[in-house]
Design a protein around this nucleic acid. Structure first.
Lengths: 213, 213, 213, 213
DNA sequence: CATGAATGAGGTTTCATTCAT
DNA sequence: TATGAATGAAACCTCATTCAT
């Protein structure tokens, strides 16, 4: 790496055949495993290929450069989580704050927990300068979904929806991250959902005016 | 070749003469600047030295290896912030939750904002495998200080102080990070203190039982 | 940076394809040539690679570090010489001292002379701290072979076989080394075999008691 | 190092004052100690200076470069040993072979053993390309002294004195080196003198014609 | 004279990427 | 298509040597 400006972050070609799809999947999975086992610094294309049971050459058939690979992995993860949250948010339009918070927290924590390894591994990758934009974009969409949801709350109205959504989102994402990165005693993990709900609900209620009638 | 020596993250030697102190400072500052301008991946010892107006050799007179340099920079920052928060927390023992939250949030945000560049630059570094322990330790001390403070609240008592302190801390750190990393519109920054207070206070009040009488 | 791995002196991978075998051989040969032309101090991996008509990267595909390369070269040489001597020694069990001395000296000098460059070059390498053990081990095996041989001499018996073998071996190795390192007028080389025989035979006869009857 | 052709190997200036003589001695001693403790590869001017209780600058006051320092140390050692042998050889002119061998062996082994560390440390240094000439010259003088001595033996005459002296010398030097470099069980060290005498005497007697009358 | 901070060439090693097979 | 050998730029780090103080 060290290349200043990768031209494209998109995968080089879309796999058509079943066999190559399997290869791509293996590379994908291998990337996450290497990330976890060795860290971003020691993630090399050769190591990834090896663990995927392929050769470097093959890897480069599907990804024009290392960064594109990482980008793809990150993208998939963000999409997964983002869609979960957005779907959840949409499904609770026109309900109470409590219902909303519960749904969103549940969706987010589940999505993150479901593939714990992946989530952990990718915090590293998100930092890389090249991926910032991607993360930022996804976060923006997430906040938009939250704002849209909050706007329909049956029991509250908000003056500054952008700010409220931002804090709402950060209140979910931040503590989860801290926890997943392992900075917390394990046993606390179980209470996470409840705590996040309390955190968000407390905040939202303080910021809400009673709804227009 | 040559035989390796045991790994230390400590600086190599303390500057004795005046001019060398200046050099060390320059290297320190340069590290942060490079981190910001180029990112952790592109931070090389040569680049740091260059920007500090020194040579690589000089850098290595004071830091046995790149990691030690990063470690030192991170350490200073964490200490600065940690001490600010701990001092603030101690100064509001035996007061109301509102006072406590206000004091702690103010201390934290001020400390982070005071040297905005540094704070931003170091989020990258905290991820590096080698620094994890350092970050974790500092976080632990922070939570302890919060717990000690909360235990003396005049208007609340908590059943599960460790968990509450954890969420409390994460509720401050998380959104601040999101904001500093630039994932938020600039104008939101100004309201940050107020929002964090609201977030924390809302949470703490929900989790509190009324104080012993 | 990055995490180090345990130290091995073994080559990194065995060449599979035909062309890579050629590469490995070229690197091997180049090492000896550089050693001779420049000396151990000036033997650098780049210089070796260059002379081998390869790139540094290629060199490191086969040897994990410089030391492993030197080790390999030394090992092959020691093995060659060691086997020659041991075979010779075994072939003259149960013969007279004169026959034994003649066979061993001949084998040793031939093996050393056969690849004169290699022999000369490697005296340097044997000194390197890392190779000491290898040399010592080979010498030990050599002395054992000599002792086993001497024990079967038809015309002599020895009280202190370990000591006698040690001096016997050193009497062959030492002067040969002095000569090969070039500290002797060239013309003397031709008489070396004869002189070594005389040296060893003189010694052994003095140390021998008459054989058991 | 890595400098192809040092202009001068001579020390930069001869110390006049007592104080500086002490410094030079300390540097000298430190060189040997570092050589032993760390090996030639890790012998750096700074390390030597430190151990000598001086600074690099001071070291360079007396030696124009590292090589000159090593050269000086080696030179002193060679001179010490050389003079011991030559004096001994001269003192036994016109005596029997047995007396001669005994005297020379005794002188050599004593000189080497007297400062065992030094002797061991310097085998490394002698290999360095730059010092070869020095070693060779000293060896030549030694052989000359031996030849001169042998020429006066009362009980033997030699046809090819140069060759005989060469082997004679090598027979003493070689095994001693092997032993000092630690390739031999410790207990053998004690018998070394006797064994060397036997080795040399056996050889010389075989090569001798009876003396002219 | 002595000091030790500074220099920077040069050595070792890694790894993204290409390309002949 | 797949392979994996080869490449070489670039990173880290050392150390002989100089020179301002």
């Amino acid at each position: 790496m060290g290349t200043p400006s990768p031209i494209t972050l998109e995968p080089r070609k879309l796999p058509r055949q079943a066999r190559s799809q399997a290869t791509v999947d293996a590379i994908f999975e291998a990337t996450i495993q290497v990330l976890l086992a060795e860290g971003l610094q020691r993630l090399t294309t050769i190591r990834v290929a090896e663990r995927a049971g392929a050769s470097v050459g093959t890897l480069y058939q599907y990804y024009p450069h290392k960064q594109a690979l990482l980008y793809a992995v990150l993208q998939r993860h963000l999409k997964r989580v983002g869609e979960a949250v957005q779907t959840a948010a949409q499904s609770v339009h026109h309900t109470s704050l409590a219902t909303m918070v519960s749904a969103v927290v549940e969706a987010f924590v589940s999505a993150k927990t479901e593939r714990l390894d992946e989530a952990r591994a990718l915090y590293f990758v998100g930092e890389a300068l090249d991926s910032r934009e991607l993360v930022r974009a996804e976060e923006k969409r997430g906040r938009a979904a939250l704002a849209a949801m909050l706007a329909t709350a049956t029991d509250a109205r908000f003056d500054d929806l952008p700010t409220v959504s931002f804090i709402f989102a950060a209140a979910i994402v931040g503590p989860t991250r801290t926890m997943l990165e392992g900075h917390a005693p394990k046993k606390m993990m179980h209470g996470l959902r409840g705590q996040l709900e309390s955190l968000c609900l407390g905040y939202l209620k303080r910021e809400a005016r009673s709804p227009r009638r």
